[in-house]
Design a protein around this nucleic acid. Sequence first.
DNA 1: GTAAATTTTTCAATCGGTTGCATAAAATGA
DNA 2: TCATTTTATGCAACCGATTGAAAAATTTAC
Lengths: 341, 341
Amino acid sequence: MNSRKRATIYDVAKELGISPSYVSKALNNHPSVGDLIRRRVKEKADQLNYKHNSHAANLRRGQSRTIGVVVPHINQSFFSDAISGIEEVCFARNHSLVICQSHESYEKEGKAIETLIHQNVDCILISNAEETISAHHLRQANKNKIPVIQFDRCLDDFDSFKVVNDNKAVSYEAVRSLIREGYRNIAFLGGPSRVKTFQERKEGFIAAIDEANLPIPYNFIVENALSRERGRQAAMPLLKLPNRPDAIFSVSDYQSLGVMDAAAVLGISIPSDLGLFGFADETFAQLVTPSLSTIDQHSVELGRKAAELYFQHIYQQEQMPETETIVIASEMRIRQSSRRQ
Amino acid sequence: MNSRKRATIYDVAKELGISPSYVSKALNNHPSVGDLIRRRVKEKADQLNYKHNSHAANLRRGQSRTIGVVVPHINQSFFSDAISGIEEVCFARNHSLVICQSHESYEKEGKAIETLIHQNVDCILISNAEETISAHHLRQANKNKIPVIQFDRCLDDFDSFKVVNDNKAVSYEAVRSLIREGYRNIAFLGGPSRVKTFQERKEGFIAAIDEANLPIPYNFIVENALSRERGRQAAMPLLKLPNRPDAIFSVSDYQSLGVMDAAAVLGISIPSDLGLFGFADETFAQLVTPSLSTIDQHSVELGRKAAELYFQHIYQQEQMPETETIVIASEMRIRQSSRRQ
DNA sequence: GTAAATTTTTCAATCGGTTGCATAAAATGA
DNA sequence: TCATTTTATGCAACCGATTGAAAAATTTAC
């Protein structure tokens, strides 16, 4: 107990005068171990302050009961909520979680995947970085027998389970709601166009414009302007045009913040001169003035679903999963920024 | 290469006609391996898509080159920023990170520690949950030869390295700034009083009141009201009093949000009728209206320091560290909510 | 009371690297 | 050329838990 090293099943076995393997079975509730012994073993283990060594077990088992998660930033509510959902499911299944941030960098994302491979995680759940252009790292994981499930930001050319929002549909609805409020010159601020998520949001935007028989405002479509800063930079020239847009549909709340910054500088008031719609329902969306209309992605549910996918389709059966895409319905949160009165 | 299992050093060794141990040494840049062989081994390893198995290495080595982090919530900027700092240092030292959330629950915190012990992390960096009343789980870690470093929310009765802000000093300054603005009836909304962090913030509050020769407003001191909801619940009765406070010093931005909620309901306007100071400089602090005066805890730096402490004092030498407390200076961000004009 | 069936317990191999020590090979020196 | 030093390579034990098969102990059946 006071030795320099941690107690092992060998220590527990010796104390009890039984074999280590028997101790292992007792601790794992193996059916061939009776109640009495099981109880006695567990007691003694406690007494010796024995703690299971996952590394040893994982090495032997060849699986780690650990799920790796890679997201761009853990402090954006969409991702931290999704992680909460994942955590919940994993916890119930007695699996642990390793969370990595890519900070939107492809290089860091690759390193994260590498680490997760080394740790021999049983599955990788990933929402890709903005920078990510190739699925090389994901293929790398697959080559090492680790299944990958993509959520939210998915690469189209990598076959895997995917869990996404109804991006097109909800974007369509959001833009329709702008049109309903009387906005006619609606601009679109997008994300990296290679990421399907943002593609779809654009498609929804175009569909709504089209349906309302408005001309598609090609010069009002800016891609790859995801952060607050880049949102501001993208909005600024648009809002300086003589025939500037009277509303902006934006694919992220942070981006919308940038639009608000630009509008403030130019003295354009929201929502009267400029309607604004964001995406993600970050904490601050309801707190800014005017409060930001946005889209609640039901991210906890989305994360939960992604994790469940692993347990239901991959964990159970041996065969590699077929590709499949799960769609989580999202919901508009209409607030002041898109209400022209 | 197409076998069902991942390549190991044995596979690499066989292909090259050398021994596995030699491969291991080559891959680890052991000095007794020449350049030529080293290069050849690494090439072949790549070719076979060999990936190091951390579990095997960790088992043998008895250490995991992994640091465990436990925080209440990953989506509060203070914590996610601190994690960024920790990540940065660990990355530079080639260590990986396991991040756990306690969701402010003592039970979950205990489970997290348990998991980290099983994973045999080399060190645990923790900011305690609101609920945490005992250091039993931290002692548990120590018993299992895992050093613990506390940051921000520290338990006083557990000896360890601690990295904290100058809570008392900055709180004192913040309250002084309220007094300077002419506020005289200042209330205090606190966190769980057993957590030293919040104790100190209260002490700073009292010191400033005292120094200004104002009476200590014992009936205006509410403890344990950390969340937005509880902040609102705590503020409501205070603000309904006939001689209600004319300012509130609050120990968290979320709590301040609750105060704003209450003030809005009661038609009390900030900052003219009520001054407000928060703590943490969350993203939303500068976005709300009026913008929230708060305290930037320099949390990235704080996290960095906590991680460095491990590498400098524990990782290097064998002996257990002496207790020591590092103080990170924080900084006021005075905005509208505390400016009476 | 003994054979058969069943339950309890142990054996021994295994997972994949790591590492100190031994050995082999090469380089150096006289 | 042979002894000596230096450098390169391999051996084998080890980390701690798991697991199927074998052995031992117990129960059941006749």
